Deep mutational scan, measured.
Amino acid sequence: MLDDRARMEAAKKEKVEQILAEFQLQEEDLKKVMRRMQKEMDRGLRLETHEEASVKMLPTYVRSTPEGSEVGDFLSLDLGGTNFRVMLVKVGEGEEGQWSVKTKHQMYSIPEDAMTGTAEMLFDYISECISDFLDKHQMKHKKLPLGFTFSFPVRHEDIDKGILLNWTKGFKASGAEGNNVVGLLRDAIKRRGDFEMDVVAMVNDTVATMISCYYEDHQCEVGMIVGTGCNACYMEEMQNVELVEGDEGRMCVNTEWGAFGDSGELDEFLLEYDRLVDESSANPGQQLYEKLIGGKYMGELVRLVLLRLVDENLLFHGEASEQLRTRGAFETRFVSQVESDTGDRKQIYNILSTLGLRPSTTDCDIVRRACESVSTRAAHMCSAGLAGVINRMRESRSEDVMRITVGVDGSVYKLHPSFKERFHASVRRLTPSCEITFIESEEGSGRGAALVSAVACKKACMLGQ
C-alpha cells in the first residue's frame, strides 16, 4: 500500500517536472537572447534605426563620474514606483581627507489618484512632500541643488532636461508624456511658492545606482535594477552614441532593455503563462523582457503555473481556492519566502493557508518547484541581457580580458534567497573573457542622484555659470 502511494507521488512529481521543464533555458538559448539583445542595442544607438529599435539606448548626458572633490548639501528625489523618497545628502571631506556622503531620508507613498490623475496632481503632491521634508529638517530658507531620480523612459536633451516617452509600472498621470519632466517639477514648486529649489540633474535609477557604486569602486561602469521592473545602464564610447554629437570619451546610456521583445525577438521563448500575464497587464505587448524578470510579474506567473497544475490534477487534489483564482493573489514576496523555507515546509504551508488552501507535504514541495522554475528562468533571462552589455563593452574597448564592476539594486536581487547566485553564475558562463565584480548599492537611487548633481554643480562652477 505504502509502495503504491510512494509510486503515485513519484509519478505525480515526474509529471510536474515535465510541465515545469518549459521554463528551462539551455545555454544556447541564452546565447541567442544575448546576441539578439546586442543587435537591438546597436539599432538603438544608431541614428537611422533608433526610432524602430525596441531597446532605445537613451543617452543620459552623464559623462563624468564623481571624483571626490564636490562638497555641499544636496536634496535628492526618487520616483520610480508607488513609494517616493526625499533625501538630504551631505557631501563633504571625511576623516583623513576621505570623501564622505551622509544621508537623511523619508519615504512617502503615492496615492492612487496622483498616479493615475493628471501630471499637475502628481507633481503638486511631490512638491508637497518636499515642503514637508524641508519643514522637518528646518531647511526651507536654503535654496538647495536638487537631483531627481526618475525611473521611467526619458529622452534627455541635457542633464536637466528630459522628455517622458511613456509611463510604465502602473503610472498613468495624463499630460506628462511628451513633456519635460524637470519643467513639470519646477512648475509645481513655483505653484507652491513656499520654498526654492535648483533642479540641476535628472537621472534614471540605473544611472543613480551606477554612480553610487562608483563611489565604492571606481571600476563600476554598469548599473542595473532588478526590482519591480528590470533595466540597466553602462558607459558607452561616445563615438557609438549617434544621437549625441561628439566622439570623445564616454557617456552613460540608459538601455531601457525592459522593452526588448516588443518587436518579436522573444516570441519563441514566451510561454502561455507569459501571454496571460501580458494580456492582463496595463501595457499589453510592451516591456516583454521586463515581464519575464521583474517583481511586478513574478508572483503572478507562479500563480498561473499553480492553476495549470491544479487543472492537471497534480496539486491540491485538483481544487483551487477562490483566493488562488484571484489575479495578483500570489505576491512576489511569497516566491522569495517559499524558496527561503528551511525544509520543514512550515513557511510554505503558512503562505498557502493564507490563500485558503490546506496543502499536503507533496503540495508544498511542488509549489516550491514552481517558484524555483519561474525565478530561475528570470535570473537566466536577466543574465543574457547583462552578458550582452558586458561583452559589447569588452569588444568596443578591444580588451582581451576586461575587469568590470556592476552596481545592482532592486528588491528581487536583494531579497530573493537564490536569485543573485543563479544570476551571477549564468552571467559568468556567458562572459568567459571578463572578470566581473557585483556590488549592491546602498540607498543607491538617492545618493547617486545627489552625486550626479554634485558633478553638475562642479561643472557649472568651472564653466562660470
Results as ranks from 00 to 15, higher is better:
Gln337Pro: 11
Thr116Glu: 02
Gly249Met: 10
Asp267Val: 09
Pro111Ile: 05
Met107Val: 02
Met381Val: 07
Thr405Glu: 15
Leu463Asp: 15
Tyr215Ser: 15
Gly294Met: 06
Gln239Ala: 12
Ser411Ile: 03
Cys457Phe: 06
Gln38Asp: 08
Thr228Cys: 01
Phe260Ile: 00
Gln219Gly: 14
Ala259Arg: 11
Asp344Cys: 06
Val154Asn: 03
Gly92Gln: 03
Ser340Lys: 08
Gly388Ala: 11
Gly68Glu: 13
Thr362Phe: 14
His424Cys: 09
Arg392Met: 08
Ile351Glu: 12
Tyr234Met: 15
Lys39Ala: 14
Glu112Asn: 11
Gly407Tyr: 01
Met202Val: 04
Asp400Gln: 10
Asp78Val: 03
Val408Gly: 06
Ser426Gln: 08
Met121Phe: 09
Phe330Thr: 08
Gly343Lys: 12
Gly80Glu: 03
Gly444Glu: 03
Ser212Asn: 03
Lys32Arg: 12
Cys457Trp: 08
Lys142Leu: 05
Lys13Glu: 12
Val154Thr: 10
Val452Tyr: 15
Met210Leu: 06
Glu440Asn: 11
Ala454Gly: 04
Met251Cys: 00
Ser411Asn: 01
Lys32Cys: 12
Val305Met: 15
Leu271Asn: 12
Asp124Gln: 04
Asn283Phe: 04
Met298Asn: 04
Leu79Gln: 04
Ala456Lys: 12
Ala456Ile: 15
Arg308Val: 09
Gln18Arg: 10
Phe334Asn: 10
Arg250Asn: 08
Ala188Thr: 06
Val367Cys: 10
Lys346Gly: 13
Ser340Thr: 09
Ser127Thr: 02
Leu324Glu: 00
Lys346Leu: 13
Thr437Ser: 11
Val226His: 06
Phe419Ala: 06
Asp267His: 07
Phe148Leu: 05
Phe419Ile: 02
Asp73Cys: 15
Thr431Asp: 09
Gly223Val: 00
Gly356Thr: 08
Ala53Cys: 08
Gly97Thr: 12
Arg325Tyr: 11
Asn391Val: 09
Ser383Arg: 04
Lys140Tyr: 01
Ser396Asp: 08
Cys457Tyr: 12
Asn254Val: 07
Glu95Cys: 09
Val182Cys: 10
Phe148Lys: 02
Glu265Pro: 02
Thr149His: 02
Ala6His: 06
Asp194Asn: 08
Cys461His: 04
Pro359Leu: 09
Gln24Asn: 13
Leu352Tyr: 04
Asp124Leu: 07
Leu276Tyr: 14
Glu322Pro: 10
Val277Glu: 04
Lys15Ala: 14
Ser340Cys: 06
Met37Trp: 01
Tyr125Trp: 01
Gly183Ala: 09
Val277Leu: 10
Val302Trp: 07
Pro145Gln: 15
Arg403Ile: 07
Asp344Lys: 15
Thr60Tyr: 01
Glu290Thr: 03
Thr437Cys: 12
Leu164Arg: 03
Asn350Lys: 11
Lys39Tyr: 05
Phe171Ser: 02
Ser54Pro: 08
Gly444Ile: 02
Ser151Arg: 03
Leu185Gln: 07
Gly81Met: 04
Leu184Trp: 00
Ser426Val: 13
Val91Pro: 05
Gln138Ala: 09
Arg368Trp: 14
Asp187Trp: 00
His317Glu: 07
Ala329Ile: 11
Glu52Phe: 10
His141Lys: 05
Asp3Leu: 12
Gly162Ala: 14
His218Phe: 11
Glu28Ser: 10
Ile110Trp: 02
Ser418Phe: 09
Thr431Cys: 08
Ser100Val: 08
Val305Asn: 12
Lys169Glu: 05
Val16Glu: 09
Ser212Ile: 00
Arg358Met: 14
Leu266Val: 08
Glu236Arg: 02
Glu300Ser: 05
Gln106Leu: 09
Glu443Ser: 07
Glu300Gln: 08
Gly294Cys: 04
Glu237Asn: 06
Asp4Val: 12
Val89Asn: 05
Phe316Ser: 15
Glu67Gln: 08
Asp365Gln: 10
Thr228Gln: 12
Leu75Thr: 09
Ala201Arg: 00
Tyr108Phe: 08
Val277Phe: 00
Glu322Asn: 14
Gly249Thr: 05
Met8Arg: 10
Ser373His: 11
Gly68Leu: 13
Glu319Thr: 15
Ala6Glu: 02
Val91Leu: 15
Asn179Pro: 02
Phe150Asp: 04
Ser69Ala: 10
Val181Trp: 01
Ser76Phe: 03
Ser76Thr: 03
Ser433Ile: 08
Cys457Asp: 15
Met57Leu: 04
Phe423Gln: 04
Lys15Asp: 11
Met87Ala: 09
Ala384Leu: 04
Ala119Arg: 00
Cys220His: 00
Arg5Cys: 06
Leu134Arg: 02
Pro153Ala: 05
Asn180Met: 00
Leu306Asn: 03
Leu184Ser: 02
Ser212Val: 03
Glu312Tyr: 14
Thr118Ser: 10
Leu386Arg: 07
Met121Arg: 09
Asp73Trp: 14
Asp160Lys: 00
Ile110Gln: 01
Pro359Cys: 14
Pro111Lys: 12
Asn83Ile: 04
Pro145His: 13
Gly264Arg: 11
Ala176Val: 09
Val401Ile: 08
Gly448Arg: 00
Arg392Ile: 13
Gly464His: 11
Thr326Pro: 08
Arg250Met: 14
Phe171Val: 00
Lys420Asn: 07
Lys414Ser: 14
Ile390Arg: 00
Gly44Arg: 04
Arg428Ala: 13
Val302Ala: 13
Gly258Ile: 12
Thr65Arg: 15
Ala320Thr: 11
Lys420Tyr: 09
Leu324Lys: 02
Ala387Ile: 07
Glu70Thr: 13
Lys143Thr: 07
Ala449Asn: 08
Met251Ala: 00
Gly464Asn: 10
Leu451Ser: 01
Thr209Glu: 10
Ser375His: 00
Ser76Cys: 04
Val71Met: 14
Ile19Ala: 14
Leu288Cys: 13
Pro66Leu: 14
Val374Pro: 08
Gly343Ala: 10
Phe330Asn: 12
Gln98Trp: 07
Glu177Tyr: 06
Val16Ile: 12
Leu122Arg: 07
Thr332Cys: 08
Glu331Arg: 04
Ala21Phe: 06
Gly388Ser: 07
Leu77Ser: 02
Val401Gln: 08
Leu88Val: 08
Leu47Met: 12
Leu304His: 13
Gly318His: 13
Glu177Phe: 03
Arg191Asn: 04
Glu52Trp: 09
Ala188Glu: 00
Met41Leu: 11
Phe269Thr: 03
Glu319Asp: 15
Gly295Ile: 02
Tyr289Lys: 00
Glu237Ile: 09
Ser398Asp: 05
Ala379Ser: 06
Lys104Pro: 05
